[in-house]
Design a protein around this nucleic acid. Structure first.
Lengths: 187, 187, 187, 187
DNA sequence: CAGTAAGCGAGACGGTACGTCGGGTCTTACC
DNA sequence: GGTAAGACCCGACGTACCGTCTCGCTTACTG
């Protein structure tokens, strides 16, 4: 009877992709009609998948969370030295482009809705910094939370450079890693 | 025009203050009616001072730019050693609270409208980093622009900690200064 | 087509019955979904029988036309004196309840679609009045068409009384017959 | 501050006029947008005057009630003999055209909303028939209510003739009066 | 008795009207 | 003369219904 759940999910994903593109092009001003048209579906159908604009946006955020979480998980942060962990983290996050920025910009709004963000993104990062402080590689005078915020800030700042097309991903990640480690490592 | 220009400017400033509060409380969703009501004036009057919502927002940004520029100017960055300059810069910016974040968040949008931002905020900072690189105190392998972005990012990240009420202004500025200088200074 | 045409017709008739009830209860506002549910069938099936709402309504009208025509035919208007003809007509029409009202309400809309209405309902009535005028039993100063309209009006007015439950069919028909004959008969 | 109530009422009346025309032309299918456009105003403004379609329609009905009531009142039914009263009533009602038909068609729907209809239209008519029965001019075997319904029916039937352009107002009213009085008068 | 083609319920879809709301423009009556 | 109140137009939002379509399932006819 019901469209197989798989098909529904695939359609929803296609809509999210299309919506992301449209919103990126037209900015926040894009109307639901525009988004639906860009996705090649009717406005009514769009509303059948996402009950309102807010839900659509947060579904897009959830997709970003998933991608980001996947990259962080495959980075295997827990099983490498701190230095290497920080380097991988920088590459993983910067590789997702501005999704990390978009997410942490209103993390307050979405973290309630998407516990995955905390569980699969924030936590592994915090754990890395905790481990670094515990084993003496990272400065003990800065709490892990603060180091997390500073590192996130560095990433976001670096992404501004990337966005301007001034530097590539590898180069950007290297700059972040280098500055953060020099700044936060002991000795 | 009977009302002296001074009076008009003062009224506009009062509206901006009130609007800033309202927008911070209710978020971007606050309607022009809400803002006008919070300012104790009619919607029509609000429109007489600011022709549209966009102008109001950018007037708020301009006010932040002015405050920020004032703090940076009085920091006298050009006449102190790099280390001290960075420290003063961190204190100046963090002292303005989230205004710097709000501004650089959509600097793309406002920098066209508010050349002051570039001229009085960005440029002095860039000059500091240039001088640092030139006199050998700051790493030469990272362009001044990148150091600027990274420093800005650190500030923003640190402000997230401040916002959560975890740390005070001085402490936050000290953390930023310490990490940035260790990370970007030579040797 | 496997299902015998007879069966199809019977199903259609059942749907019409059910739809008539539903529409009477819920008024014109009843949705096609409501009607289908009331008929115990799916909406798709309803559309298989009637291509759109308009067709369903006009099929209901056609059914009313058929019932009304049958009653009028079995009244044998042509073979009885005018007085008796008018009396039988009143009983026949009032016996069908509000169907006559519904039909003549938008006879303009349906008479094109349902020539039966004119041929099998209007015409026999008109013929009766024509015969009455011709043989001197009915007033010659009122054209048959006008007498037809007036008689129809009386019926409808009387049905309002019946609808309110104030009077039975026989009594109502008697009132109509009595007033009309006194009013339209010669001498 | 507020648009003077008079002005508002006048605007509302203009909208009703325009809406009546549009609805008559395009039928019940006319959208609120069509109606607003025909009235030369925006859809939002239309909704400011009438909260929804139903209210607009019933305001149109109310206007008809007022016109009808005015005509009936100026007919002075209570101060003339029954015969003359019936004749005046017929002329008054037929003079309003189909408004009476539209109103009594769904009097059930509107009589709750517009008590004026009962008080200023139905009651004077009923009173006339009551007086006729009481003073022996009208048949006692038909209750006043029934006579009211029959008379209304005659009017509506006659209006069908008028609508077809077959007869003028005076002539139509004369036919109704003549048939009704012959049919319902004593002797 | 098994295969098959029909009719069916369920429901997704595009489209359109409804009623609501906020933005921006304008007029009108006050102070 | 500037201000507050608010009427107005426009366009987006979210909802509901219409008419179309496609899916599996059932059922009843056929080989």
């Amino acid at each position: 009877m019901t469209k197989s759940d798989g098909a529904r999910l695939r359609t929803a994903a296609a809509i999210i992709d299309s919506a992301a593109t449209t919103l990126a092009e037209r900015g926040e001003a894009a109307s639901m009609d525009d988004i639906a048209a860009a996705a090649g579906i009717g406005r009514a159908t769009l509303y059948r998948y996402f009950p309102n604009r807010e839900e659509l946006l947060s579904a897009m955020a959830a997709a970003s969370v998933r991608e980001l979480a996947a990259r962080i998980e495959e980075a295997g942060l827990a099983s490498v030295p701190i230095d290497e962990g920080v380097a991988r983290l920088a590459r993983a996050i910067i590789g997702t482009g501005n999704k990390f920025v978009a997410l942490s910009a209103d993390s307050a709004k979405y973290s309630a809705t998407y516990p995955d963000f905390d569980a699969r993104v924030t936590e592994p990062m915090r754990a890395l910094f905790h481990r670094g402080i515990a084993n003496g590689s990272l400065r003990a005078d800065l709490p892990a939370d603060v180091q997390l915020d500073l590192f996130s800030g560095l990433i976001k700042g670096a992404l501004d450079s990337t966005a301007s097309g001034r530097r590539g991903v590898e180069e950007t990640a290297a700059a972040v890693t280098s500055v953060f480690l020099r700044g936060a490592r002991t000795t």
